[in-house]
């Protein structure tokens, strides 16, 4: 059980939420936006999180958007992952989501919650990183839209009082060839050792990673290695592994050296599945 008390608010509009946050912050209540809440609940129980006020964003219509409007897909931060899977607008997101936690937990874990998690994995961001998606956030200065890589670069970039409202993705990415694979320490359950999501765009394969570094990322340098024509598959994969732009983690799921070994093999699978093996 959670060994401290907090106030609970469920605003029905963005402006109300922002205003609540401002007031509660001024009152020194360390307010947090609450979406699925699974991480807030589980970390609070262990004294690893503290707040005196939560602002539940699931009552805000914009945070619950799950619709295609013209060529653009809108997915709200407050949507449970399971609901996004059922709607299945974005196949790469669907398969990525299906490998997060477990089915029942995903009834509660939301898109925004996963992306803004304090854990290193945040796998739901991967498809958005690959699809040049836009991110809509809301804060004191109202709603703002910006490219995903300005919102998420190693860390989430949010001002005080600002929160994630929704993602916007162009239709052509929803129909692009894709591949997703998650390797675990052993068998089918547990955190990722490495998750790779891949998307084909204009004849090039884009890749994004979770579990490899202390944050999920997309790497242009690795993509260059992978997309090099006239290079044998194994060589491409090795070059990509040598070009990992960030620190590789060693933890109880696996060592950095082992992660590199696994990644090399996984990348060969990715390129094979994307039909980009290259010369033998």
């Amino acid at each position: 059980m959670i060994p401290f008390d907090f106030e609970y608010y469920k605003p029905s509009s963005i402006s109300e939420a922002v205003e609540l946050h401002r007031q509660l912050d001024e009152a020194g209540k360390k307010p947090v936006y609450y979406s699925g809440g699974t991480e807030i609940i589980t970390l609070s129980r262990l004294n690893l999180f503290y707040t005196e006020a939560v602002i539940d964003i699931k009552g805000i219509p914009e945070c619950c958007l799950c619709e295609k409007e013209g060529t653009r897909l809108h997915l709200g931060a407050g949507l449970p992952l399971a609901e996004i899977e059922r709607a299945d607008y974005f196949p790469l997101l669907t398969v990525t989501s299906k490998d997060i936690a477990d089915n029942t937990a995903r009834m509660k874990i939301t898109l925004g919650g996963n992306v803004c998690s304090e854990l290193i994995y945040r796998e739901a961001i991967l498809p958005f990183l690959l699809s040049d998606s836009q991110v809509v956030t809301a804060g004191a200065s109202g709603e703002v839209s910006r490219p995903v890589n300005e919102f998420f670069n190693k860390e989430i970039v949010l001002e005080k009082g600002e929160f994630l409202v929704r993602f916007i993705t162009e239709e052509r990415f929803l129909r692009a060839p894709y591949f997703h694979t998650k390797r675990r320490k052993q068998w089918n359950t547990g955190y990722p050792l490495i998750t790779v999501a891949a998307l084909q765009e204009e004849g090039k394969t884009r890749t994004a990673y979770s579990g490899l570094s202390p944050f999920p990322f997309r790497s242009r340098i690795m993509e260059e290695s992978l997309n090099r024509d006239n290079t044998p598959l194994r060589r491409k994969a090795e070059q990509a592994v040598n070009n990992i732009p960030h620190e590789i983690i060693s933890d109880s799921e696996g060592s950095a050296e082992y992660r590199k070994f696994v990644l090399k093999n996984v990348l060969m699978d990715v390129m094979t599945r994307m039909g980009r093996r290259g010369p033998e």
């Binding site: 609970y8 699925g36 809440g37 609940i41 589980t42 699931k58 089915n103 029942t104 937990a105 509660k108």
Partner: peptide, 11 residues
């Protein structure tokens, strides 16, 4: 289905 340990009663 919901894991009731992951949901606040208020929700």
């Amino acid at each position: 289905p919901v894991k009731s340990c992951l949901m606040l009663a208020v929700e």
